[in-house]
Structure formats: C-alpha cells, structure tokens
C-alpha cells in the first residue's frame, strides 16, 4: 500500500474501534477509570508522604509530580496506540491470526498496531495531563509557544521510547509465543522514572540513561522545564534517543519477521 494511504486507513480502523467501544460503554468507562485508580494509589502515597516532610531529598512535591506526570503521559501514548504489542504472541502468533496480516497488502506491523486502539490508555493520559498542569502551575512554568513545543516533542519522544522498547521485546513472540514476561521485564523499568533519578544509586541512573533510556521520557525534560541546570544532551536528547531506539526496534522486528517466515509457528 502506498505510504500516503496509511493515515486514512488508520483513521478508518480507529473510527470502527471507537464504534465497538461505544457499544460496550460500561467496559469503556471502567477500563479508562480503572487505570486512573491504579495511578491514584501511587499518587495518593506520594501526596500523603510529601505533605508531612519538608522535601524528598531536595525535591518538592510539584517537582516530583511533574516527573511523574511526564512519564505517565509518555506511557499513555504507548498504552493507547501500541498496546497490541503485548498481545502479539497470545492473540496473533499463537492463534495464527498473524498469518492473515501476512497475506494482506499492508505492512504487518501497521496492521498489528491499527488493529486495536486501547482505550484504557485514556485514563493514563488524563492523569498525566492533570499532573503536569497542576505541577506546572505550582512551579510557575509559563506555557509560551516554545515551552509547549518543547513539552510536546518530549512527550512524543517519550512515547516512542516506550513503543520502541515494547516492540523490541515483543518480537520474542516469534520464538516463544508468550512474549509478555520478556516485555514486562523491560517495561517495568519505567517505574524508576516516576521519581527523580537522583534518589537512586548511580548505577540505576546510568541504566535509565544509556540502556533502557526512560530517563529521557521524564527526569531530563522535567529538570529542564523546572529551570534547573540540565546538560544540553539531557535536555534535548530525547528525540534522538527515540529515533535511534525505534530504528533498532524496527530492525529487530524485521529480524523477527524473517524468523517467522522460516518457521511459521
């Protein structure tokens, strides 16, 4: 299919997906709110604790919330648009549904992603958005066009970092079918990025910068937005990191597809 037609095809998939979701309105609401609940438990903890202490090793509550909000927003992009990567093994490879993608004249990865927009991510998106808005107001961040663009680019890059890591790990489904544990192990590292990296041992900071770079999805852009002194490569590195990671992930995906072509299931 011509590259030009992909956006409109995605739009068609999305429209029909929403139509289905609206049919199960109750599920839709519960799904979206349940993620808010889970986030709520963690956030309530942070709030309860931080209202009793002067600071978190030098960080104020709004500062922590900004970091937390940024990672939640990035995660929500992955959650909404690429959640199907989790189910590649269970719902597509194991059942043989992936064969269907292979006999259609569209890119199989596109088909996989377009197949299921995940509404649960909307809850995360809202939580992240509200957190960032509150934190920004408390920190006195002025939303100039420059800041807005910076913010949007960082969140999108963060989303791509999430998607690329999930893509890389979900490819294991072509070998072991049950790819969820592999994906989960890498995905789980984002939990670190909910708090300032400076509270962790140095090794973890390095890990989240150079190996599983969730630091670029929250901590680094957040310090820059707060007006703290941030090295340039940290403040602006996210798009580059995201691009490199995505390129690697796509190569891994193609490798996985080749394997699928030689073994089937």
């Amino acid at each position: 299919m011509a590259l030009l037609n992909y956006p409109s095809l995605y739009w068609l998939f999305l429209k029909n997906r929403i139509k289905i979701l609206m049919e199960y309105r109750m599920n839709f609401l519960i799904g979206a709110t349940s993620t808010i609940m889970i986030q709520g438990a963690g956030l309530l903890t942070v709030w309860v604790i931080m209202s009793q202490i002067p600071d978190l090793n030098g960080w104020t509550l709004p500062q922590v919330l900004l970091i937390y909000g940024l990672i939640t927003l990035s995660k929500s992009i992955n959650h909404m648009f690429a959640d199907n990567l989790w189910t590649l093994g269970r719902d597509y490879v194991r059942t043989g549904a992936f064969d269907r993608f292979m006999v259609r004249p569209v890119d199989p990865l596109f088909h996989l992603l377009a197949d299921r927009f995940c509404h649960d991510g909307i809850g995360n998106f809202l939580v992240g958005g509200v957190l960032v808005a509150i934190a920004a107001a408390r920190l006195g961040i002025v939303w100039t066009p420059g800041v807005i663009v910076y913010f949007a680019v960082m969140v999108l890059s963060g989303g791509v970092i999430f998607i690329a890591l999930n893509l890389m790990t979900c490819v294991s489904a072509f070998w072991i079918m049950d790819s969820v544990p592999v994906t989960r192990v890498v995905f789980e590292m984002h939990e670190f990025a909910k708090y300032p990296l400076s509270i962790y041992p140095r090794a973890i900071g390095l890990l989240l910068t150079w190996a599983i770079p969730f630091g670029f999805a929250s901590y680094f852009p957040a310090t820059r937005l707060m007006g703290l002194e941030t090295p340039l490569w940290q403040a602006y590195g996210a798009p580059l990191v995201a691009a490199v990671l995505l390129a690697v992930a796509l190569a891994v995906w193609r490798f996985g597809l080749r394997h699928y072509g030689s073994t089937g299931t």
Partner: peptide, 25 residues
Amino acid sequence: WMSWFVQIIAVVILVAFWRAVFSNT
C-alpha cells in the same frame, strides 16, 4: 522469573524512595 524481577525492581524503588523521604526528617 518475570515476577521476581519485577518485584526486585519494586524493592529497589521502594527503598530509594523512602530513604529520600527520610533524608531531612
């Protein structure tokens, strides 16, 4: 194996977070 790994991450975060909480109190 996955759940062990995930829980160990949770332990590390938990300890780091609470040490930071008690850093000035």
